[in-house]
């Protein structure tokens, strides 16, 4: 059953990454150099939608709270994120979009994947060092206190539950996506669009 779900959900995820342009490094590059943030709008709406559905479902008792999986906060998250950001801008791929782009026949993406295997291997070899200097120590915080979960809350004294906060933030993400202009740098039309608007 789990394997069937892996094929079904993984397959859908791959289709969606390809359809929103995330497997096309040009769209990643235009987002990161701020000349066309169409992809960022898509991602903001996706996070908002998923958040509203998940927390709404948890409040109604339709979604198992135990399926949540929150990661720890530590120095490694910030430093690792910053290292990833440099590579992301250089290559135009992140791990998920890179493997999908490789599958669509983008030859440069296969080299991204090969480099990724080297980078992950280098981390496996240096892991004891990062652990020893304490970069991996930390707790799994959520913003609000989520009923049914044991995660410590960053904001424990809110007048509403972490579920409600999650729905509110989800709505905020979608509003930000609607408000943000397509182009944040320069005065020209958004980059990379022969026609004004991608097909609805």
């Amino acid at each position: 059953m789990e394997i069937f779900l892996a094929i079904a959900i993984g397959g859908l995820f791959g289709v969606m990454l390809e359809r929103i342009g995330a497997t096309d490094p040009n769209w990643i590059g235009r987002m990161l150099n701020l000349t066309n943030i169409h992809l960022m709008k898509t991602i903001l709406v996706a996070i908002g939608t998923a958040s509203i559905l998940m927390f709404g479902g948890q409040m109604l008792g339709l979604v198992e709270v135990g399926h949540m999986s929150v990661k720890a906060i530590n120095v490694g998250v910030l430093l690792g994120g910053a290292i990833l950001g440099i590579g992301w801008a250089i290559a135009g791929y992140c791990p998920g979009t890179g493997v999908c782009a490789a599958a669509t026949g983008r030859l440069d993406a296969w080299f991204f994947v090969a480099g990724g295997l080297l980078g992950a291997g280098a981390y496996a070899l240096t892991y004891p060092f990062w652990k020893q200097i304490g970069f991996l120590n930390g707790e799994k915080w959520t913003l609000g206190a989520i009923p049914g979960a044991d995660y410590p809350a960053a904001l424990p004294n809110l007048p509403f539950s972490g579920d409600v906060l999650g729905i509110g933030i989800g709505i905020a993400f979608i509003i930000v996506a609607i408000i943000l202009p397509r182009r944040l740098a320069g005065q020209k039309a958004p980059a990379g669009e022969g026609v004004a608007e991608p097909a609805e």
Binding site: L84, G87, P95, A154, G162
Partner: peptide, 30 residues
Amino acid sequence: GGALVLFGARLAGGCTSGHMMSGMMQTAVS
């Protein structure tokens, strides 16, 4: 780029999917 991205992702304990999208949708501070 791939080497930097995966080294960073493993140091951080996740990537754009696991940390940024799955994390923020769960209101995970990380």
